[in-house]
Write a protein that binds this DNA or RNA. Structure first.
Length: 420
DNA sequence: TCTGGGGTCCTAGGACCC
DNA sequence: TCTGGGGTCCTAGGACCC
């Protein structure tokens, strides 16, 4: 092996995460039936019948229920299907418990998503044994202490480690070292490669590329000509070339924060739309302040009844974290963009995040800035202490719209405990 | 089968400057 | 004001991920 192959990277992937976590939680709270042993799915909102399958049990898979399909079609395939609504708070706790075990094996742990982590095991051999031994130890410990299974992929970079953990599930350790690429990876269909999705796969097929090996051995100039820089990236991946670092997560580096919602009915009037947008803005702004950050770009997205999508964004003159300031822009953007069509889905997103540490107040912000900021932060404190519903705007009281809509990301609640 | 919600990155085109 | 071309900033939209 050459010196660039010196790194040892693990990718840890929770098997059917949401479903496993629901099953473990329920068993620990006295339920007799293990969700993993019956046809069951996590997903959607059973009340509105909206939504899709987020995770499925192996028995549900036998009925050909697929991740991403609507609950309606899933029920048609499998009439006895048990449907569980997702509880993201529980998943965050499980994810935190996983991360804290991993951190005992290396200080370099990157949470890639709620159910996937990278771990840099380079030069830990001396202390903790060979990579394969350590991976088995980690896998078995997670099962013993937390009750769910994981796959662990081992290689010399993140891409190969991730491809390895995907090989055969569940409860497995796989290696995919550079000398195993041909036998273990090139034989797979090209759509199994990370970053080859619904739009890219058909383009590759048209070029006669069906396996990862076909892509790896194709002429890179031709790939570049047809698929631009994205093509060069996946060609590199197919050859196992990837060199990004396992970086310890830091939510300061987040690029944007957004929340969106599909509405149970079609919205046809400005008042209702604005009420929903205000509710989304409340959540987004609170998350932003929770990060100790400011934003410079505000964007509103609209999806119509017939699934037409459009968005409108604007760069602000000076950065802000104020709910009111953001909402004023949101309102303007919506009124400029909306073409009077029935609305199915609305979203608010802020980006160009910067730290508020050295924030200089612009003279255009006026004398009320500090007052606005302290009001926002007082409300945040109450919400964090007594729950999101404890305080809301008067205008929502009889509207039938929740004063806060939207979920949170992995690093939004660092104070959340790691206990399952 | 008409498809949820949270992200990131890239590209293309227009405005504007020199 | 006829023309060219390079650079940057901004916005909209698409592709991918989990």
């Amino acid at each position: 092996m050459s010196s660039s192959d010196d790194k040892v990277i693990f990718h840890i992937d929770v098997n059917s995460a949401y479903l496993s976590w629901e099953a473990v939680y329920r068993l620990q709270h006295g339920e007799k039936q293990d969700l993993r042993e019956i046809p069951s799915v996590v997903g959607g909102d059973p009340k509105t019948r909206h939504g899709i399958v987020l995770a499925k049990s192996i028995p549900a898979k036998k009925f050909k229920v697929q991740t991403g399909e609507s609950l309606y079609t899933a029920c048609q395939k499998c009439p006895n299907l048990t449907i569980i609504s997702p509880s993201y708070g529980l998943y965050m706790k499980c994810s935190n418990a996983l991360v804290s075990i991993l951190k005992e094996y290396s200080s370099k742990v990157q949470r890639y998503s709620v159910d996937e982590c990278f771990l840099d095991y380079t030069s830990m051999n001396v202390l903790l044994g060979s990579p394969i031994e350590a991976a088995h130890k980690i896998k078995d410990r997670i099962y013993k202490e937390l009750g769910f299974t994981v796959n662990i992929g081992i290689s010399t970079n993140k891409l190969l480690a991730k491809m390895a953990s995907d090989l055969k599930k569940p409860n497995r350790v796989h290696t995919l070292f550079p000398n195993e690429i041909k036998s273990k990876m090139w034989t797979l269909p090209v759509e199994d490669l990370y970053m080859v999705g619904r739009a890219t796969a058909p383009k590759l097929h048209k070029m006669g590329i069906y396996s990862i090996g076909d892509l790896a051995t194709a002429d890179v100039d031709l790939i570049r000509y047809r698929l631009k820089s994205h093509g060069v990236m996946i060609w590199n991946y197919a050859n196992g070339f990837e060199a990004s670092k396992v970086r310890v997560n830091n939510y300061i580096h987040r690029k944007g924060v957004g929340n969106s919602t599909t509405i149970a009915y079609d919205v046809t009037d400005v008042e209702n739309a604005l009420m929903i947008l205000l509710s989304l803005t409340e959540m987004v702004a609170m998350r932003l302040r929770n990060m100790g950050s400011l934003c410079r770009v505000v964007s509103v997205s609209i999806k119509t009844k017939d699934l037409k999508k459009y968005s409108h964004q604007r760069k602000l003159f000076s950065p802000t974290d104020s709910t009111n300031d953001i909402y004023i822009v949101v309102k303007k953007l919506f009124e400029e963009a909306w073409q009077n069509e029935p609305i199915r889905h609305l979203g608010v997103r802020i980006s160009e995040i910067c730290t508020d540490e050295f924030y200089q107040t612009s003279i255009f912000d006026g004398p009320n800035l500090e007052r606005k900021r302290s009001l926002d932060s007082a409300i945040d404190d109450i919400r964090l202490k007594y729950g999101l519903k404890s305080i809301g705007r008067g205008s929502f009281v009889n509207s039938g719209i929740k004063p806060i809509i939207g979920g949170v990301g992995a690093d939004d609640y660092p104070m959340m405990s790691s206990i399952l």
